[in-house]
Each structure stands twice: as structure tokens, then as C-alpha cells.
Write a protein that binds this DNA or RNA. Structure first.
Lengths: 208, 208
DNA sequence: ACAAAAGAGAACAAAAAGAGAACAAATTAT
DNA sequence: ATAATTTGTTCTCTTTTTGTTCTCTTTTGT
């Protein structure tokens, strides 16, 4: 049994990473498009190599066939540690509870706590002066109270979630953006519900 | 069996430190890029020396071959935890090569590339306007060239490593801080050596 | 100044990867 | 039903990448 070549490995990784986004076994054309290959014949050779390697098996559910991952590979994948749940993006105006887990993200221990945490992607520039940019990921510790000066995920009027500095007294809750172009918002404590405290932040520079 | 030369040792260290970031046996071209060597022929000599030293062995899994670490070397290495090597801090004035791996850090896939990467902790405020703060961690892809406008780890005069924006022409290399209080530095291309390109950034808010 | 080490670059054969055409069976549309 | 499209499969041909070997220049240490 031969070891995989570079391209074969890429094809396999693609299959593994996307195996649950395919409703039914993907066709060669679909895969070509996803992998950036023009010719089905070329891809076919790679698939055959993966079958020979026992990583993928022909699918016998219907006459036309298709392929799927070996049961063993699927199990391996599902036993892998998942990391923190990635919930979606914030500042889109939806409460966190309403958002389903979209996936999982492996996060360095230094960016999380030993309490339950989740990951959000930041939309908008409301925290740029705190070094949190549009598109950044933030790690949030799930809790319902915070100290003054912390950055929190706050749900306003049970409808809109935002990431802001918090400053609270008995009479009012101040939500302060870190952006000179935006204004602080003042609420009655009953109007604001804390959904978590910022414990980590991450940014990718992979695509400029 | 001869003792290794300096460069051979460097090549071996590179292979050992990154052997799990290679999906399959790395090609000479890949290694050249990672090590900053232009000529495959040059690298080939080093590889042959490592094979002669028994640290690396030709890989017979597929026709085209390739190389991999000796099983013995892998076992020595695999007792270590996974993740990216954490090298230390930057802007301390020491070249990266001089710094030993201090530990390993698990990093989200989105913050790294499929090439070998390492993690540094940032000291100082030279990049605050790019949202990179004192104490942040940065993920660096190990490579020896960069596009203009990218943020790089640059080794100046073989003695001092800094994190800066780069702007290079045939005559000069500009290293631009992201801090209005600091000035850009201009060097002759020979004075500057690129040690990697920024691909990710992380910050912990756990202790204010 | 000398020798060892390191690098650049060209050349070459083999392997890998890809394009594209062809065809029959299966599927879908009309 | 027939026609049109999509599927897996097989084939040849071309391009790209790979390991390997060479010669020549540059760097480095003594």
C-alpha cells in the first residue's frame, strides 16, 4: 500500500473536512469545483488512490455509486477534540441564545478560562480602539455578571447583542464602545443582560 | 560518521521542529522555501549528509520518494506536546535562531498556515496601531521573503529581531512601525533578513 | 592564502498532476 | 416515450514538479 502523494492528501483532507456538508455522496464534478480541478479524469485518479489506501470507499447505495469516507476515518474524526463552540458573529443584533453552534474552534489555553467559554466573530468597528477589529474572533466566558471596566457581551432589551466596555452602578448600566465616532449608551439595569465576559481575542492575517 | 556542520544542524532542527506540520514528506522545494535557500541542489547536499548521519532516511512509500525523520528521532520528539513551538518574545533584541523553543501552544487552524509556523510574544508598543499590543502572541509563518505591506519578523544586522510592516525595493528595505511616536527605519537589503510573516495574532484578557 | 562549507543555477529523467476527449450507464427533463 | 444531461470510467497528451547530478561562485574559519 502506497503512501499518499501531496495532492492526494489534499483531496483527502478536503473530503474529511467537508464530509458532513455533503447531503449525499459528492459527485466528481462537485469535488472538482471545490478543489479547483478542471478535469474529472484527473480527480478520478486521486480518488482511486484514496480507495487503495483504504481511506475512502465506493458507495453502493445506488447504482451510480459515488464515494464516501471509510467508517474508520469518520470515527477517528468524531473522536477528535472539538475545542470551543463557535456561535456566529456579534453586533448583528441577535441574542446569543438564538444562535446555533456553527462549528468548533481549537483555542489556546491561555485565551480561555476553566469555566465554559464560546467563540464569536466580531462584526463592525465598535471596539477598534481596544484592538478588536472587524472579523476578529473573541473568546467569551459564559457568565451573567461582570466587573466594571471589563468587556462584555451584553444583550439589550432581549433583542440586540453587542460587545462593549461595561460600567454599572445601582441606577444605570453604561455600555461604552472603544471608538471615538460612537457614543456610549446608558440603560436601566433591567434592560441589559450580560451574556459573557471577554477573555481572549484572535485575528487571522492569512488573507490580508 | 562525520559530525554535522552548522547548516546541516539547522536543516535537521527545522525538520524535527516541523515534522508534524508536514502532511506528507516535504519536497525539497518546500524545505528550500522554509529555510530560505534558493537552490534545491544546495539543500540536497545537506539532506544527504543527514541521511549519512542516520538522522533522516529516504522515504520509500511512493515512487517519488522524499525523506522523513528516522523513527528513533520521531519517538524522541513525539514525547513532546503538540501545537506550534513557542519561541519566546520579540523586540527583545535577540535573533530568533538564538532562541530555543520554550514550549508549545495550541493554535486555531484559522491563525496558521499549512507551512511551518511558530509563536512569539510581543514586547513593546511598536505595532499598537495595527491592533497588536504589548503581551499579545503572534503566529509567524517561517519564511524568508514577504510581500510589501505585510507584517514581518525582520532580523536587522543579524542581531536584533523586530515586528514591523515591510516595504522593500531593490535599493532599500523600509521597516515601518504602527505607532505615530516611532519612526520608520531604512536599511540596505543586505542588512535585513526576513524570518517570517505574520499570519495570526492572539490576546488574553484573563488578567486585565 | 588556503580549504571547507554553503549556495546559485543549469540540466535531465522520472513521477505526479492536470487537461480534455470519448463512451456507456444512470438520471433528469420534456 | 424520447431527448438531453450528468454520472463514473478510461484513455491519450501536455505541463508541472520532483529528485538528482553537475559546475561555478561566494562565504567562512583558520
Amino acid at each position: 500500500m502506497n503512501i499518499l502523494t501531496r495532492r492526494q492528501r489534499e483531496v483527502f483532507n478536503y473530503l474529511r473536512d467537508n464530509h458532513d456538508s455533503f447531503a449525499c455522496p459528492p459527485s466528481l464534478n462537485e469535488l472538482c469545483e471545490g478543489l479547483g480541478i478542471v478535469s474529472r479524469g484527473s480527480l478520478y485518479k486521486h480518488i482511486m488512490a484514496l480507495i487503495a489506501a483504504g481511506l475512502v470507499e465506493p458507495f453502493t447505495g445506488n447504482k451510480q455509486g459515488g464515494i464516501r469516507l471509510t467508517q474508520q476515518v469518520i470515527e477517528e474524526d468524531s473522536t477528535l477534540p472539538k475545542g470551543l463552540p463557535f456561535i456566529g458573529s456579534i453586533a448583528a443584533g441577535k441574542p446569543i441564545e438564538a444562535l446555533a453552534t456553527e462549528g468548533y474552534m481549537t483555542v489556546p489555553d491561555a485565551l480561555k478560562t476553566d469555566k465554559p467559554c464560546y467563540v464569536l466573530q466580531v462584526k463592525g468597528d465598535s471596539m477598534i480602539e481596544a484592538g478588536i477589529y472587524d472579523g476578529d474572533w473573541v473568546v467569551i466566558e459564559q457568565c451573567s455578571c461582570a466587573k466594571n471596566g471589563e468587556i462584555v457581551v451584553a444583550l439589550i432589551e432581549k433583542s440586540e447583542a453587542t460587545l462593549k466596555y461595561i460600567q454599572q452602578t445601582a441606577e444605570q448600566v453604561l455600555l461604552l464602545p472603544a471608538n471615538a465616532n460612537m457614543t456610549a449608551l446608558s440603560y436601566h439595569p433591567d434592560q441589559v443582560e450580560i451574556q459573557g465576559v471577554l477573555v481572549g481575542q484572535m485575528r487571522s492575517y492569512r488573507f490580508h
